[in-house]
C-alpha cells in the first residue's frame, strides 16, 4: 500500500468568471482522517471533484493511492459522498445499492451480502420491517441519508471522500457518521472530508488543510497547526455576565487583538507585547468574578478566523466550495 493516499501538486482550476482553485498542493498520508476546511466558495468542492476526476484541473497533477487519478481502475477504490445528495426515488433500496456497487465493480452476490450487513448495522432492517425492499421515496430523509452512506462504502473503498458530510444530518445520523469515520480509520482506511464546522474537524481529524479564495492558507497535523499558532490564547470564563468595565478591558487593543465572545466564556487572543498576567490583574481590578483563566492552544475555529477572517469569501462566489 502506498504511503500517501493522496498527493495534489500545483493544481489550478479556472472558470470563465473566476478562479476556483489556484496552485494548491497537499499530501494526505494513508490511514489519516484529513479535513479540508474553508468557507463556502473557497474551492473545496472543486478540489474534491478534481480528486475524483469528475473535472480536470487546468494545471498540476493529482495522484490517488499511488496512481494518477486519470486511471479509471484507481477510482473504483474511492468512495464518495457528495454534498448534494440524492438517490433514484422510484427504485427499490436494494436495487439502488446493487447498482452503485456494480458501478464500482462489486458483483451482485457479494453486494447482497454487504447490503444485508449494512442494513442490519444501520438498523434499516428488523424482524418486522426490511427497508431494503422499500422504494427510496418511501424512506424518511434520515433513512435515505443512511442508504447514501451505504452506497458510499459498499465497495469497501481505501480512500473515502466526504463533501460536507454533516450538512443536513440529524444528530443521530451525525453520530453514526462520526462512528463510521472512526471505524474506517481503525481499519486503516483514509478519510478526507470537507467542512466548515471546525468543532467536528478538530475532534475527528488528524490533519487539516484550510483553504480560502481557492488558495491554501495553511496545512499540517491538527497538533502542529495549533502549536504553530502559538500560545497567545487565553480561555476565560466568568461567573455571571460581564459588566461594561470588564468588556472595556477585553476590547482594549493594546491587550487583546481578537475576542471570541460567547457571553460568559471567551477565547481571547493577546495582542503582541501584551502579557496574560497584566490582563488577569486588570480583570480582577475591574471586579470580574473569574471561574477560569487558562493559557490554551487556540481552537481550530480561532485559527480559522485569525487566518481567513470574515473576508474569506470572495464576493460573487457562491454555490460550491
Amino acid at each position: 500500500m502506498s504511503e500517501t493516499a493522496l498527493e495534489i501538486r500545483g493544481v489550478a482550476k479556472r472558470y470563465a468568471a473566476h478562479v476556483a482553485v489556484r496552485d494548491l498542493s497537499l499530501t494526505v498520508p494513508t490511514g489519516a482522517v484529513y479535513g479540508l476546511l474553508g468557507p463556502n466558495g473557497a474551492g473545496k468542492t472543486t478540489t474534491i471533484r478534481m480528486i475524483l476526476n469528475i473535472i480536470a484541473p487546468d494545471e498540476g497533477t493529482i495522484r490517488v493511492l499511488g496512481r494518477p487519478n486519470t486511471e479509471t481502475a484507481v477510482l473504483d477504490r474511492l468512495g464518495y459522498l457528495p454534498e448534494e445528495r440524492g438517490l433514484y426515488k422510484t427504485m427499490v433500496v436494494r436495487d439502488v445499492l446493487r447498482f452503485l456497487g456494480a458501478l464500482k465493480g462489486v458483483g451482485t452476490h457479494e453486494a447482497d451480502r454487504r447490503i444485508d450487513e449494512w442494513l442490519d448495522r444501520l438498523s434499516l432492517r428488523s424482524e418486522s420491517k426490511d427497508w431494503g425492499k422499500a422504494k427510496v421515496e418511501e424512506l424518511s430523509r434520515g433513512m435515505q441519508q443512511k442508504v447514501q452512506f451505504i452506497g458510499t462504502l459498499l465497495h469497501d473503498p481505501e480512500l473515502v471522500i466526504l463533501d460536507e458530510p454533516f450538512s443536513g444530518l440529524d444528530p443521530i445520523n451525525a453520530q453514526a457518521l462520526k462512528d463510521t469515520v472512526v471505524d474506517l480509520k481503525r481499519r486503516g482506511r483514509t478519510v478526507i472530508f470537507s467542512t466548515h464546522l471546525m468543532d467536528n474537524a478538530e475532534r475527528l481529524c488528524d490533519a487539516v488543510c484550510i483553504i480560502a479564495r481557492g488558495e491554501k492558507v495553511l496545512d499540517g497535523t491538527v497538533a502542529g497547526v495549533k502549536a504553530a499558532a502559538g500560545d497567545r490564547t487565553v480561555a476565560l470564563a466568568l461567573d455571571g455576565s460581564a459588566d461594561p468595565a470588564v468588556m472595556t478591558i477585553l476590547h482594549d487593543p493594546t491587550l487583546v487583538t481578537r475576542l471570541d465572545d460567547r457571553s460568559r466564556s471567551f477565547e481571547v487572543t493577546l495582542a503582541d507585547g501584551a502579557d496574560a498576567q497584566t490582563l488577569l490583574t486588570r480583570l480582577v481590578g475591574a471586579g470580574a468574578r473569574i471561574q477560569r483563566f487558562e493559557r490554551v492552544q487556540p481552537s481550530l475555529h480561532q485559527i480559522f478566523l485569525d487566518r481567513v477572517g470574515a473576508t474569506g469569501v470572495e464576493p460573487g462566489m457562491s454555490g460550491h466550495g
Binding site: 469528475i54 477510482l75 473504483d76 457528495p82 438517490l87 433514484y88 458501478l103 447514501q148
Partner: peptide
C-alpha cells in the same frame, strides 16, 4: 433530469464518465 434534480448524478459521475 431526474438524475440531475435528485443529485444522483453527483455520485454516479464519480464512478462513471
Amino acid at each position: 433530469l431526474e438524475e440531475k434534480t435528485t443529485r444522483v448524478a453527483e455520485v454516479i459521475v464519480a464512478s462513471v464518465k
